[in-house]
């Protein structure tokens, strides 16, 4: 099992929501910039790795039962987006890794994405 805390360390990421629980299980990962694909293919309870930082990502995450979001390329959502994430108690990590690098690091622990 990989926890969110371990995932954060693995990606040298910053937890933008320090108030959220970081002991949760992160054994299923879904990486995509397409919210349509998140809605159609992601298993509930997965961690979403994405380069999109708009409010639609947060709403998609809530509706599709995303457990936490990892924003890549050092992207940081603006205050309005973060406010909405906090409203839904959604843990957010920002990492400077590219999508490929993030997935590559995660795959050492979860070879098939879970």
């Amino acid at each position: 099992m990989l926890t969110l805390k371990e995932l954060q360390r693995l990606l040298s990421g910053e937890l933008l929501t320090p108030e959220t629980n970081t002991d949760m299980d992160c054994s299923e990962i879904f990486a995509s910039d397409l919210m349509s694909d998140v809605l159609a293919f992601m298993h509930p309870g997965s961690i979403l790795v994405t380069g999109q930082v708009n409010t639609h990502v947060i709403r998609t995450a809530c509706l599709a039962d995303v457990a936490a979001i990892v924003f890549i390329q050092g992207k940081r959502p603006d205050d309005a987006v973060m406010e909405e994430a906090r409203l839904h108690s959604l843990p957010i990590i920002s990492t400077s890794c590219s999508m490929f690098e993030a997935c590559s690091r995660i795959s050492r622990f979860i070879p098939d994405g879970g």
Binding site: V38, A40, T50
Partner: peptide
């Protein structure tokens, strides 16, 4: 915005 991938109706 990450939408309009042609999955909506089928999904």
């Amino acid at each position: 915005l990450g939408f309009g991938a042609g999955m909506g109706l089928s999904n």
